[in-house]
Computed example of a mutant assay.
Amino acid sequence: MRRVTTTPELSEAGDRLVAAFGDFITSLVDYLEKPTNPPTSADVTAASPAAAFPADASNKWLTALEAAKHARRNHITVLKALGSGELHGHQNRRGGRWQVKRNAVDAWIEHSDGAKACGCRDITDRRHRSDNSPNRRA
């Protein structure tokens, strides 16, 4: 069996390491044994989810990909639903990126009115004017 010899410097470094580790364990035990004060009603109110998030955080704008993740559907399915009008969404120009409110995605999943869930007012699409429109070209 081979015998390992140590130098005084190595032995001293090991002793310092053991002492430092012992100090760390002692301070950790002291920290864990400190009594904690029970939360007050003000702490509970400040920690409530309603206080942590703004009122409209649950109805933020989502991209089509984020809406697909939220609905747990494929993003192509979401894009088709947006294009057909089944899912209520907004584009800043034709062929542009879709923006969807989270509540509209939830309404689409529940098969209810997405425009009401989005908070949009009822507007008619300019591309689909009635036949008696004054701006109709003959």
Rank of each mutant, 00 (worst) to 15 (best):
H90I: 05
D131E: 13
R97E: 14
V44K: 14
T40G: 11
W98F: 15
G114I: 03
Q99T: 06
A115F: 00
T40K: 08
K116D: 09
R121W: 02
P35D: 14
I123H: 06
K101R: 15
D125G: 00
T6W: 13
R73K: 11
G119C: 03
S58D: 15
G119T: 03
L82C: 12
A50E: 15
E33C: 13
H88F: 12
P8L: 13
R137G: 10
H128L: 14
A50C: 05
T63M: 03
P38G: 09
K101Y: 05
S84T: 13
S11I: 10
P54N: 11
V78C: 03
A107M: 05
I25P: 00
L10H: 09
A138E: 08
R3A: 15
E9G: 09
H75A: 15
D113H: 01
D23W: 03
R94C: 01
R72Q: 15
D106P: 01
D30P: 00
H128Q: 12
E12S: 13
R16D: 13
R137E: 09
A46P: 03
N103G: 04
L82T: 04
D131S: 13
A52V: 09
N74T: 11
A68V: 04
S133M: 00
D15Q: 12
G114Y: 02
H75N: 14
R93A: 14
A55Q: 12
S133W: 01
K69P: 00
T26M: 06
